[in-house]
Design a protein around this nucleic acid. Structure first.
Lengths: 185, 185
DNA sequence: ACAAAACTTGAGGGCACCCTCGACTTAGCT
DNA sequence: AGCTAAGTCGAGGGTGCCCTCAAGTTTTGT
């Protein structure tokens, strides 16, 4: 349902791209809370132009992250293809947090609710769908403790977001300890 | 080395107490970042008076938390008295995070460095001392995986701080999963 | 009761961020 | 080339927090 309004003028289209590039870089590097002014400056465009294109921070996020979040589907599919359900689940976790560790913005997104970015929310739901299946299978396979739930994984994700933020070198070890705790008795 | 300057005037002493009480309450409830204005208002005192008594936020924190952090010694001693070293360690973790869950300010303190509050830092060091002994004993007792270190526990503490912040009902379960992962192979 | 010292007050300056809007510039059509 | 809709610009108003300081008030010692 993209409103197919008249195409942007050439210069406007160029500015829009510069803004998206700047925001992508800065979100990844400094997280979702970079000042709007910084984004505009980095794009070499005025603050007014930024707001013309993206009246709210959420719209900017919505313009950028659906693509980034497609990576979730990729790692989800990859894990689903793994014949060993426990291994699949563990690999999924590892890939997911590796992704978060590479992109501070993604890390922020997965750790917060952003109620006003529906496309982002739905991508997260898709991710949760994958996760849920992987959990179910891993339990059925006897590898994962039977009381594990998607809620637990949401909690883990927020915890991991924090660990990634302030000890980026530590997250893999932290995760591996936690994963040990997940084996079925 | 408390500078034994002339005693405070009666009204000043009263205000100081009101400020400490207000800050204690607000830190516990809303964390270390409550606006200074809120603290002053809550104490029914002007912002100027707050700054007269505590020129920086750190000094206010330093005036309040050493006492709070004494609780760390208590749970440390309690755990040290436990004859089963694995059990001692697990109980220590549980008590520690229960403490954090009750006091948002304490939670913040244990999750950040506050380089300008030496008394707080030293209390944390004392706590780390307890933790280190409990870890060593639990490893020696064969319960705890032998590669566990105080660094791991610091990481855990930051992770727990986050979990406590945004899913206060979930922390105990999260911890128990993690602790399962800590058993010696 | 008085004066000096101690203390309190809150308006206000500074800063960082948010976002708007009227005046200017430019792409793109004819 | 000239017109106009589309786009750009950035000063500036709003908010929330930080912290200071000159003017006024209260305590306390004599």
């Amino acid at each position: 349902m993209v409103t197919a309004s008249r195409p942007l003028r050439a210069d406007a289209a160029r500015n829009r791209e510069k803004l998206l590039a700047a925001a992508t870089a800065l979100f990844a590097e400094r997280g979702l809370d970079v000042p709007m002014e910084h984004i505009a400056r980095h794009a070499e465009v005025s603050i007014g132009t930024l707001y013309k294109n993206f009246p709210t921070r959420e719209e900017l996020v919505s313009a950028i992250f659906p693509e980034r979040l497609a990576a979730l589907d990729v790692i989800g599919d990859k894990a689903m293809a793994d014949p060993d359900p426990w291994h699949a689940f563990v690999v999924y976790l590892d890939d997911l947090y590796a992704l978060q560790a590479e992109d501070r913005g993604l890390n922020d997104i997965l750790a917060r609710d952003l109620p006003n970015a529906p496309e982002v929310v739905s991508a997260c739901h898709r991710g949760a769908g994958h996760a849920e299946i992987l959990i179910t299978r891993a339990i059925a396979g006897g590898g994962l403790r039977p009381d594990y739930s998607i809620t637990d994984m949401a909690t883990l994700t927020r915890a991991m977001a924090q660990v990634i933020r302030d000890s980026p070198g530590e997250w893999r070890r932290f995760l591996s300890i936690y994963v040990e705790g997940l084996r079925a008795p």
